[in-house]
């Protein structure tokens, strides 16, 4: 009897263990903070015709998807650059405090907000038809975290010390789940009385929109704070930086004093806050 109970218990436990160990394991492990996840403005073509008639209502239905691994804050979607003589929009700018990040609880398109722009198509002043270009802008604030594990070796010479090995050249990265991405990291140890680690990071805008400004958040190497400064960028009045005109990249230099003499692996964590704006150019036809 005891034997039967024991066997049954073992089988039952095994069943639980197997049950817990499979199934959603992959979903739970998906890292949403990888790649160049770009936000997208998608127009509902069925509910938003491209041809309108004069003196008739206008409506445009669209969705902003957040495919990034971070939430979007202060989201503003604006319908602009249309000729106000021929089109009157009741609510040309719409505000959303937050859009959820892409995570396991939403579909592949990430968090979303749906919106509708309404208004009136006005008189054409005798014209048969008119092609009216307009532009949809979506601007928001968001963040990006760069958190790789790196090897640090303060030794003056490249001697194997049974720890880890520092990369001899730049290491490439393929995005951190946002349009703003650290695309390469170079580690340089400057030997002196006190060894200093210099980290050179290339920061790029991998999206089609514009990064309005970037601010640095926390920057740590393990528990040691990093001193960072942007290079090859424009400095704004509010101490944020922007990429130079017609450029989509810049550099950031972070330094830390190394106390440990032997090599070791540690977590690097640098946090960037940025404002982003993307736009979509569209055109409608207004007919008599």
């Amino acid at each position: 009897m005891v034997r039967t109970v024991l066997i049954s218990s073992v089988l039952l436990m095994a069943l639980f263990v197997i049950g817990c160990g499979s199934g959603d394991q992959q979903t739970l492990q998906k890292n949403y903070k990888l790649g160049y996840a770009l936000p997208a403005l998608v127009i509902d073509e069925q509910r938003s015709p491209t041809v309108f008639y004069e003196n008739r209502p206008f409506s445009l239905v669209l969705t902003l998807f957040n495919r990034a691994g971070y939430p979007l804050q202060n989201v503003r979607v604006t319908l602009a650059n249309y000729d106000q003589t021929f089109l009157s929009i009741a609510n040309p700018q719409q505000f959303f405090p937050q859009i959820e990040e892409n995570n396991a609880y939403n579909d592949d398109n990430g968090g979303r907000v749906d919106m509708v722009f309404t208004g009136d198509v006005l008189d054409l002043h005798g014209a048969e038809e008119r092609r009216e270009p307009y532009r949809l802008y979506a601007s928001y604030d968001s963040k990006m975290e760069f958190a790789p594990t790196i090897c640090v070796n303060a030794a003056r010479y490249d001697v194997f010390d049974a720890g880890c090995q520092m990369p001899k050249s730049k290491v490439s990265f393929s995005g951190q789940g946002a349009p703003l991405a650290v695309t390469s990291l170079e580690e340089i140890v400057l030997s002196g009385d006190v060894a200093e680690l210099e980290l050179r990071l290339r920061l790029e805008n991998k999206g089609n929109g514009d990064i309005k400004n970037i601010r640095l958040g926390q920057a740590r190497l393990g528990n040691t704070p990093l001193a960072c400064q942007f290079k090859d960028v424009l400095e704004n009045a509010d101490k944020s930086v922007s990429f130079k005109s017609n450029r989509k990249d810049g550099e950031i230099l972070c330094t830390a004093t190394l106390v440990e003499k032997s090599s070791y692996q540690t977590a690097l964590f640098i946090e960037f806050f940025y404002s982003y704006e993307l736009s979509v150019a569209r055109q409608m036809t207004i007919k008599r």
Binding site: T78, A80, N81, D83, Q84, H125, Y137
Partner: peptide
């Protein structure tokens, strides 16, 4: 403030 305005004059 905000986005540019476009208008037509006659």
């Amino acid at each position: 403030q905000g986005k540019p305005k476009v208008e037509t004059f006659f």
